[in-house]
């Protein structure tokens, strides 16, 4: 039996083809139930203020970073001979390359700012308290991973500042007792910073950290969905 109108929340669809297509998918996957639960019949508490949006905004900037990062990868060459010139080419020759790199660079800064605002808001309003303790820990982990993204991404253009900032940055953990020296060797891929360091930072920046970050973002969101949005104070 065919439906006359398909009702999804405030939407009323009467187009026959649209209804048939939707029903064909719904019969196989039961998407209507999901759409109703998660979107069309979902309610959001009215007490949310402007300050509640910064977690979502951080997530959106993360998505922007993935998109612009993937585009930058098309022209970037991770070798100490060509890294700098390939970034210069992105800035000067590639159409809108300056814009994509600009959004990626500003996005990295803005993401840290929005995470800090998000964290401050959660702290001041005491949202980290029971039952959300674990999600605070997961959230701080995400912040640290974001700093890791910034640290590894900073070296990739192979500029003078980036190189020497990385020298200092990888020297820091060497002060740790027992594991320090090994950690520095692991980060640099040798005694000094060179091609292996760049290759390593590139792999960490574009593959390893994004995968870990995306998984833990998933964990962050699943916890929010299970526990619901916190009530008013």
């Amino acid at each position: 039996m065919e439906l006359e109108t398909l009702e999804l929340g405030p939407l009323k669809i009467r187009n026959k083809l649209a209804i048939r297509l939707f029903s064909a998918v719904d019969d196989r996957l039961g998407v209507k139930e999901i759409l109703q639960d998660e979107m069309f019949e979902k309610i959001v508490p009215a007490h949310l203020t402007f300050w509640a949006c910064f977690g979502g905004i951080s997530f959106f900037i993360f998505i922007c970073q993935i998109v612009t990062g993937a585009l930058l990868m098309i022209y970037y060459e991770p070798s100490i001979m060509k890294a700098h010139s390939s970034v210069a080419r992105i800035m000067n020759d590639v159409p809108f390359g300056w814009l994509i790199r600009g959004v990626h660079a500003w996005g990295s800064n803005l993401m840290i700012i929005t995470i800090l605002i998000h964290m401050t808001k959660i702290f001041v309003t005491g949202i980290y308290k029971a039952p959300r303790e674990l999600n605070w820990v997961v959230g701080v982990t995400l912040f640290l991973l974001t700093l890791g993204m910034s640290f590894t991404g900073y070296l990739l253009p192979w500029t003078q500042l980036a190189y020497w900032a990385t020298v200092v940055g990888t020297e820091t953990p060497a002060a740790m007792p027992v594991v320090g020296e090994h950690l520095r060797y692991f980060l640099r891929g040798g005694e000094d910073i060179g091609q292996i360091t760049l290759t390593r930072f590139f792999a960490i920046h574009v593959m390893i950290l994004p995968l870990i970050l995306a998984s833990i973002v998933g964990l962050h969101l699943v916890q929010i969905r299970r526990q619901g949005i916190s009530g008013p104070m």
């Binding site: 100490i80 700098h84 970034v87 210069a88 800035m91 300056w98 814009l99 790199r101 600009g102 959004v103 990626h104 660079a105 500003w106 800064n109 840290i112 700093l147 910034s150 640290f151 900073y154 253009p157 192979w158 500029t159 003078q160 500042l161 980036a162 190189y163 020497w164 900032a165 020298v167 200092v168 940055g169 000094d192 910073i193 060179g194």
Partner: peptide
Amino acid sequence: FSIIFPAHLGVKADPFDTPAHIKPEWYF
């Protein structure tokens, strides 16, 4: 921001030339 303050690309790294002032990004 990308239009008004374009992303900066500094000079190429030189492992034999230690700059006088090494400063990290603001968040570090």
